[in-house]
Write a protein that binds this DNA or RNA. Structure first.
Lengths: 232, 232
DNA sequence: TGTACATCAGTGAACGCGCGTTCACTGATGTAC
DNA sequence: TGTACATCAGTGAACGCGCGTTCACTGATGTAC
């Protein structure tokens, strides 16, 4: 029990949590469009207008769910990467972590990586959490470069693209070669492309179930990035 | 004027077209969730119940739009690939065709490659049209293999994945090496992953605008597939 | 070519639904002296 | 420690909205003889 919080404050924190939890439950069961404040209130045994003490509008509740989802998937990537020393294994762990989270949280994944909900505009608060998975990947590459297990590819970039990768490098404070960063964007895209295709059933008729394909693609991506296992 | 059609039949065909057209307009303007039969009828100067002569339910109208969208993006890929002889240029043309279509038809793209609309289940009629873009890619690879401009990669596949690629090969009647097919699924995924990321703003802060990145990635994917320009 | 009947497109009213949000209110919790 | 006032959580009724779908109907188009 936190003595610096009043009972009111504690109750408020707790109820805010419960509202998001119930909203997440309904999101998982029914999808984003069927999620309604009235439904959440009903399930919590409250009157719908009471929710407005906690979230000023439905969009604000959605924003909170989106931020939570970005943080959850980012954390899954971080934990996955943290399980190993070897750069290839860290990369693999991050990918598997993201995929496992996505499969377990279909609708939350759709909320952040599916098509945007019309009428809803993501506010700035989401951009930080949204970057977490990318940062994990960048971290693996930076560490691999430092350990000498990253083979930089040699294909030259166009000036515009090189400018963009240099801005990225500056933003994250890592000095990786431009070509590596451009390739990193490709594999980052590939990761979410595969998960989206798997979850929306686009692989039915080809590589569904996608477990082995996913493993294979992870290996190909690591090679494409120039990652190699630590030599000892 | 088609003499084998009665005026009634012609009117029916025409109005069916107009309904879909207006629905597409509202989809583009408002998004899938805001699309309503009443709105479409209103705009066409009809009473909402009249639409039921043409589509038994809203889901049927959505299905028609989805099929049209798959066909349109498939056609864009086909036309893009048809513009060249060289396999790398055909591949590039197909990718650019798909991207251009997607950028010009944001909501229709979202309808087929965004997150699924909850409560809507895609019927079988969509699977044929949905395969068209993939078939274009396979066609490019088949022709390249026949012309000897496809370098087969040598990494071996796991048994399960090899089985899946062999079923794919059988389904499309092409005998490409398993490894090429597995890589084809990767780049096919990459193509739509990039387009989705571009359209949903995930590249803001990295490679946005994405034109040059897209060009670069297309080249990397062609190399990954083992495609090389025709030698003469 | 003309008539009798069948088909079908479109009308207009209605049903029943659930939604987001506002507002004046009651009563419990917290704060200052 | 006790009292007076301020803050805030939750209530309940209401507003206004638009939706998908059904149904009995009118009148125009098509068909068979």
């Amino acid at each position: 029990m936190n003595a610096s919080q009043t009972a009111r404050e504690r109750a408020r924190t707790e109820l805010t949590r419960e509202i998001k939890e119930e909203a997440r439950r309904q999101l998982a069961a029914e999808g984003a469009e069927r999620l309604s404040l009235r439904g959440v209130a009903r399930e919590l045994g409250m009157v719908s207008s009471a929710l407005y003490r906690y979230f000023p509008s439905k969009d604000d509740l959605l924003t909170a769910l989106i931020i939570d989802a970005y943080n959850a998937v980012g954390e899954a990537a971080e934990i996955g990467a943290a399980g190993a020393e070897d750069p290839v294994e860290r990369w693999r762990g991050a990918c598997q972590g993201v995929r496992a989270w996505a499969r377990a949280h279909l609708r939350e994944y759709g909320l952040i990586y599916g098509s945007t909900i019309p009428g809803y505009v993501a506010p700035r608060d989401t951009v930080g959490p949204a970057a977490r998975v990318g940062l994990v990947l960048m971290g693996v590459l930076r560490d691999a470069a430092a350990a000498g297990t990253l083979a930089p590819p040699d294909a030259p970039l166009s000036p515009v693209l090189a400018g963009q990768t240099r801005e990225m490098a500056a933003a994250i404070g890592a000095d990786l070669p431009d070509e590596v960063l451009a390739r990193a964007v490709i594999v980052w895209t590939q990761l979410f492309g595969m998960i989206s295709f798997e979850l929306t059933g686009q692989y039915v008729g080809s590589v569904d179930p996608a477990d082995e394909f996913f493993e294979y693609a992870i290996g190909q991506m690591a090679a494409f990035l120039g990652l190699s296992p630590t030599r000892e």
